[in-house]
Design a protein around this nucleic acid. Structure first.
Lengths: 213, 213
DNA sequence: ATTAAAATGTGACTAATCCTCACATTTGCA
DNA sequence: TGCAAATGTGAGGATTAGTCACATTTTAAT
C-alpha cells in the first residue's frame, strides 16, 4: 500500500501525490480527506463532490488538500484503488484452490453473489465505476435505448419459443444486448486482434443462450 | 424527428430546447451547431468540447447556441438521439423477419458485426456511450483491474483445461468478467427483481461458457 | 405598405469551481 | 538551539458554463 499511484501509464496520466504524507499528523489528515471524499461521493456522487467541501468536512484547508492530491481525480483514484485492492484479494482467495469443474461452478457462483451484494451496498464504488462522472441522464437514455433494442430481440425469441416464460426471454434479451455493448466497448479499448476475438466469443456465448434452452 | 427530447423523464431531466427553430434560417444554424459539436467531440471528446468553440465553429454567437440548447448536455443528448434513431431502425430491420433458429443466428451475427464496425468507425457515438465524460484514466484503471481479476479466472481455466488454447481462455475470462460487471451495473439501474433475474441469467451464461467447450 | 409581435441574434458579464502560490507554522534532527 | 524539511493556509488567478438586456430580422395581420 506504499506507493499508491504509479503503476499505470496510459494515455491520460493521473498525477501522483505531490508529496506523500510522512509524518503522523499528515497521515491522519489524509485519512480524513479520503473519508470526507468518500462520504460526499456516497451522498451526492463524485461529480457533485466539491473540493472545497471535501476540505471543509475533513477540517483542513483547500491548500492542504491539494498538497496531497494534485487534482480532484487523484482523490477518486485513491478511493478506487482501495476498493480495487480489497476486491482483488477477495477474488484471488475465492478462486485460488479451485481444482475441478464442480469447484469452479461453486466458487464462481459465490463470487458473483458477493460482487453483486458489494455493488448494491457500496455507493462509492458503484459511483466511481458506473461513473457519476458520466451524465446520469445520458445513462438513462442509453438504458432506454438498450431496452428498445432488446425488445426487438425478445420479440423474435417469443416468436421462436412461444412456450417459454416471456419474462425470462425479456431478461435474456436485455442482458444479451447490454453484454454486447460492454463487449464492444471492451473490444475497442484493447487492441484490434484481441478486440476481434472478444467480439467473436461474445457472439458465440450470446447465440448459445439465444438458441438453446 | 420533430420533438427532439421529451420522451424520457428520469430522475435527472435534460431540459428541452428553450425554443424550437421554426424559421429556415435558424434551422440551418442549429444544424451547423450540431455539426460543429460533432466535429469537436470527434476531435477531442465531449468532455473537452467547449461551448464557446462550438459557437465559434458554427459561426454563431454563444447566445444563439444557448437559445436552442439550454446546456451543454442538451447538445450531446441531441447527437445521441440521432444515432439512437438510426441504429434502432437498423436493428429493427435486421430482426424483423426472423422466423427460425437459423435465421436468428444469421441475423444476430450480422447485427453484431454491423454494430462493431459502427463502434469502430464512429468516434462521436463511441465517445458519448463510452463516456469521455467519464474519466479516461479511471477507465484505464478499471480495465487494468478487470484484467487482473480475469487473470485469476483464466489461471483456473488453464488448470482445468490444459489442452485448450491459452489465448482463447484468457479472452473468455476477460469477457466473462467484463460482462459480469456490465450485468451488475445494469442490475442496479433496474429494479431489484429484474436485477436479480439478470444476475442469475448472467451466472448461467457465464458458467456454461466457463465449464463447457 | 405599415406595424406590432414573435422569432432570432449578440456578446459582455455573472457565477461557480478547480487549482496555484507566496507566505506562515510545525516537526524532525544534528 | 537552530535549521531544513514537511506541513498548513486561504486569498486570488484562470477557466468555462450559462444569463440577460438589448438589437435585428421575419412573419403576418390590418
Amino acid at each position: 500500500m506504499e506507493d499508491t499511484a504509479a503503476r499505470f501509464s496510459p494515455q491520460e496520466q493521473v498525477a501522483s501525490p505531490r508529496r506523500a504524507p510522512s509524518q503522523q499528523r499528515s497521515r491522519e489528515r489524509v485519512g480524513r480527506m479520503l473519508a470526507a471524499a468518500s462520504t460526499l461521493i456516497a451522498e451526492q456522487g463524485s461529480d457533485a463532490m466539491r473540493m472545497g467541501e471535501v476540505a471543509e468536512r475533513a477540517g483542513v484547508s483547500i491548500g492542504s488538500l491539494y498538497q496531497f492530491f494534485p487534482d480532484k481525480r487523484a482523490i477518486i483514484w485513491a478511493l478506487a484503488e482501495r476498493y480495487t485492492a480489497e476486491s482483488q484479494a477477495c477474488i484471488s482467495a475465492a478462486l485460488a484452490d479451485v481444482s475441478d469443474a464442480e469447484g469452479l461452478s461453486q466458487a464462481f457462483s459465490e463470487l458473483v453473489d458477493i460482487y453483486y451484494r458489494l455493488f448494491l451496498a457500496e455507493p462509492v464504488m458503484r459511483d466511481i465505476w458506473s461513473g457519476t462522472q458520466a451524465d446520469k441522464a445520458l445513462r438513462q437514455l442509453e438504458l432506454a435505448d438498450s431496452r428498445a433494442n432488446a425488445e426487438f430481440l425478445s420479440a423474435v425469441l417469443k416468436r421462436l419459443r412461444p412456450a417459454a416464460d416471456p419474462v425470462a426471454l425479456e431478461t435474456t434479451a436485455l442482458l444479451v444486448w447490454q453484454m454486447g455493448e460492454a463487449a464492444m466497448r471492451l473490444a475497442i479499448s484493447v487492441g484490434r486482434d484481441e478486440g476481434d476475438r472478444l467480439v467473436a466469443t461474445y457472439k458465440r456465448m450470446a447465440l448459445r443462450e439465444l438458441l438453446a434452452e
